[in-house]
Amino acid sequence: MRLLAPFLLLLLLPWSGTAADFPGETSTWNGYVRHDFVFEGHEAIVVVPDQPAPGRPWLWRARFWGHAPESDVLLLERGFHIAYCDVADLFGSPTAVERWNHFYTAMTRDYGLAPKVALKGLSRGGLIIYNWAKANPDKVSCIYGDAPVCDLRSWPGSRRDLPRWQVVLDLYGLSEDEIDTAPVSPIHGLKPLAAAGVPLLHVVGDRDETVPVADNTAVLAARYRALGGSITIIHKPDVAHHPHGLEDSTPIVDFILAHTPAPDAARP
């Protein structure tokens, strides 16, 4: 059989649209084209690389858009799209998961992004990245949690007098007594992720009193490893909840790149 001509090989690569394919107002973010638009009534953002990598890989950020962006910028340099869909004050609830389901469908079906996405969650962003990933393990390439909330009972549950705690109870449809045993936090129901072989990376400050490592990352890590899952933890010994990220984001970027499927493996 004759070898396919180079241009035919290019045609066999996944669709690679341009920045114009995304809706909304455009601006510049760290030197790249940013699209701000409304998705089903909620804020959404997509930042487009100058040259999308084959397969159109993407990083999906949760909460606190623009904070600790160093790894995002490095991934843009390597051809990743960076996406965001607002689920603020939904605390990883079923409502948040459903909204993310719709956004994922739009990003992959309508805009041609890769079917497997890398997830990034800072602090309370850990709630949605894990609860969405557990509901969609086949759609996740890897998870990067930075000082992530892994147990609602730790945050905001440790401050049950705050108005947001009642919001949590209402969103999950649980009583004060029920939420203490309900399996609704990232530390629960990890088996689908482990079975799918989704690798995890957590960056944590050992002096974090807002989201204590012992009550969050340590519990999740022990349970995930017991299920056969892989998790890497980078400890920052003298750091509290802030600052997020690392002085050198290379380990974060290398982790995501190492677990990004090749184009032919990424699409059915």
Rank of each mutant, 00 (worst) to 15 (best):
P137D: 14
D138S: 12
D138G: 15
K139N: 13
S141F: 00
I143A: 11
Y144S: 11
G145I: 04
D146V: 02
A147S: 15
V149Q: 04
V149F: 05
C150Q: 07
C150S: 15
D151H: 07
S154Y: 02
S154N: 10
W155V: 05
G157N: 09
R159S: 14
R159A: 15
R160F: 05
R160L: 12
D161I: 04
L162G: 13
P163G: 10
R164D: 12
R164H: 14
W165Y: 08
W165F: 09
Q166L: 11
Q166A: 14
Q166T: 14
Q166C: 05
V168C: 12
L169P: 06
D170Y: 08
D170A: 15
L171E: 13
L171P: 12
Y172C: 02
Y172N: 05
G173D: 09
G173R: 00
L174K: 14
S175H: 00
S175R: 00
S175L: 01
E176I: 02
D177E: 15
I179S: 04
A182R: 10
A182V: 03
P183D: 08
S185C: 10
P186Q: 10
I187P: 01
I187S: 06
H188T: 05
K191Q: 14
P192M: 00
P192E: 06
L193R: 02
A194S: 13
G197E: 02
G197R: 00
P199L: 02
L200A: 10
L201T: 08
V203C: 08
V204P: 01
G205Y: 05
D206T: 08
R207P: 03
V211T: 00
P212Q: 08
V213M: 01
V213T: 08
D215R: 13
N216P: 07
T217C: 10
A218F: 06
V219A: 11
L220Q: 07
A222C: 02
R223N: 08
Y224F: 11
Y224V: 04
R225W: 12
R225G: 14
A226K: 03
L227Y: 01
G228N: 11
S230V: 07
I231N: 12
I231Q: 15
I231P: 03
I234V: 11
H235K: 13
V239S: 12
H241P: 14
H242V: 11
P243S: 13
H244Y: 12
H244R: 07
L246Q: 07
L246H: 02
E247Q: 12
E247P: 09
S249L: 00
T250W: 05
V253S: 07
V253R: 03
D254A: 13
F255K: 04
I256E: 06
I256G: 13
A258D: 09
T260L: 06
A262G: 12
P263A: 06
